[in-house]
Design a protein around this nucleic acid. Sequence first.
DNA 1: AAAAATCACGAAAACGATTTCGTGTTAATA
DNA 2: TATTAACACGAAATCGTTTTCGTGATTTTT
Lengths: 342, 342
Amino acid sequence: MKAKITLKKIAKGFDVSISTVSKALKDSHEISEEVKERIQAFAKYYHYKPNSLALNLRNQKTKTIGVIIPQIVHHFFSKVISGIEHIANEKGYNVMICLSNESYEKEVLNMDMLASGVVDGIIVSVAKQTEEKGDYTHFKELINNGIPLVLFDRKIDEIQCNKVLVDDFGGGYIAAQHLIDIGCKKIAILTTPNHVTVGNIRLEGYIKALTDNNMLVDESLIVKVIEDHDIADQIKEIFRKSNCPDGIFAVNEIYAATAVKIAKNKGLNVPNDIAIMGFTDGLISQFSSPQLTTVAQHGFTMGEKSMEILLEELNQQDTDYQYQTNIISTDIVIRESTKKTN
Amino acid sequence: MKAKITLKKIAKGFDVSISTVSKALKDSHEISEEVKERIQAFAKYYHYKPNSLALNLRNQKTKTIGVIIPQIVHHFFSKVISGIEHIANEKGYNVMICLSNESYEKEVLNMDMLASGVVDGIIVSVAKQTEEKGDYTHFKELINNGIPLVLFDRKIDEIQCNKVLVDDFGGGYIAAQHLIDIGCKKIAILTTPNHVTVGNIRLEGYIKALTDNNMLVDESLIVKVIEDHDIADQIKEIFRKSNCPDGIFAVNEIYAATAVKIAKNKGLNVPNDIAIMGFTDGLISQFSSPQLTTVAQHGFTMGEKSMEILLEELNQQDTDYQYQTNIISTDIVIRESTKKTN
DNA sequence: AAAAATCACGAAAACGATTTCGTGTTAATA
DNA sequence: TATTAACACGAAATCGTTTTCGTGATTTTT
């Protein structure tokens, strides 16, 4: 393990002071051309790099932002990260990604770590367990400490900060409306338990679309999938009912793809016997067969927007800075799984 | 923006020295119980957290490791990250993830950033562009600077360091052998251009399996897909040939799923007319129809192993430390796309 | 009562870099 | 020749923390 090269060592080598070396490397006019050249050449040869820790400590900023996401094996979050990275790199910021694995405890741990001076600001999508627990003190502490925070994807009214959200309500609405438009009469929804905000809001959009079309909301067609249990088993339930649906709106790709698989196993034709669509335009939707109609939620744009807002907050000086909530609209991507051919 | 609380400020408040505060917070026996209690209570109330930058600077270590991956929207890399995180968290390390987007320039940038003192060690999967360029000076510099490095997934013989690799040769071999076993006579391979090492090695495994079984290697059945062009167009070529294959081994999920789609469009039955299999057991393989037989490369295990080796190197004192290359074996996951029913 | 030990705390160095403010030497000006 | 710039560099503070080494003031021991 070779010792890293520092200003001090260069100074000793040239028998000058540390300040001289520092200035020489910054090409200061205070230093003679001859000394500058020699020092610069030496530094270049040995690949001298100023120590970031020292710089950050002195400048009281790190040019790094932290991101805490619940999962990484997930198309949407990957896209958001890409969007964040895109803007961050443009503006010369580094990105530190942490995973909470949907766990409250890991979220708190990650946040503590990030808040201890290693980043200038933080972007978070709240873990499901935190939503369930409803304990947001770690966020409030962060804000109290004056560290800019942007929340994305999951809507938490209890925290006052900048937010970037998906238009889950609108997404749920256009999904249901699409199924209605193609002639579905009995539309089921595969959603998440109540504490998962995004699923809940999509459900609300679905309900609104149904009532706007004078359709009854049948509780038996609303399936709240619990992730601890076998997902397929829970989805199968809906096919057993005497009132088997002719359309299914799933609030994510996995549920949608699973529903398709079950339907096909039951001998049903998708989309002719039953139309099925999902949420999130990921790889599963694109590659499953039939290809899935879905609501695209533009993760990349969300990441970009989150980073832009964070930068805004980082650069603002106003005492009366106003937090904003940005809603990213959704689009429907129509594919085979809802294109009836008869 | 509230000012952060520091030892200095606490010291001023209590009219004691900084050292006293520091010791009081560490419950040192040098400080009287009374003073300790008061300072500790104050610190707790105001959520005092030692500044990481200062600590890292003093301790000359950050308890953070950096990871540079080419892509994040990719099941395999996501899995690797999860594995790295798993071990890192167990050992009290933080993980900083950077994306190179397969770009040489971004890889160098990220590495420079990480090498400037912010991490204790680095785990990298080399960008395709770097492989193509063949310029590994930034890696050599890193090693020269004494920063532990672990390379994973992509095999770079030019760099001397710890490595964790997929058994791509074995994977290619068992894939081809499997197709042979189920009776395929003309087996095509969809692989990557020569400079992408993993694709290349999988191709070698495929060739070895064929020759071991006394089968001819038909150059016209080896398709090297160029990612700049339309992937589907290039894959379609193989179906046009007079000698259309009865088995396809694709070196990744996307190629495999695309091949399946094309085959189905041509009216071919998968697997009966043509068996198709991929590499990487990701979501596409699991959810496409028919479900894809594939070679699982255990990304999670690779991540864990990479982190373990990095920790080993971080903790070693030996002057004659020996680098190791760890090969993670692959498994074949047989699904519908190669299960002939006739 | 003198010597030694303990107590409770402060001063200062160290990590690595930047930057302000000197300061001694030479060169230009009056 | 005396004064003033200009030049080329060094000392020291600063960022926040830990830690070693003092050092006065008690307290204990002889």
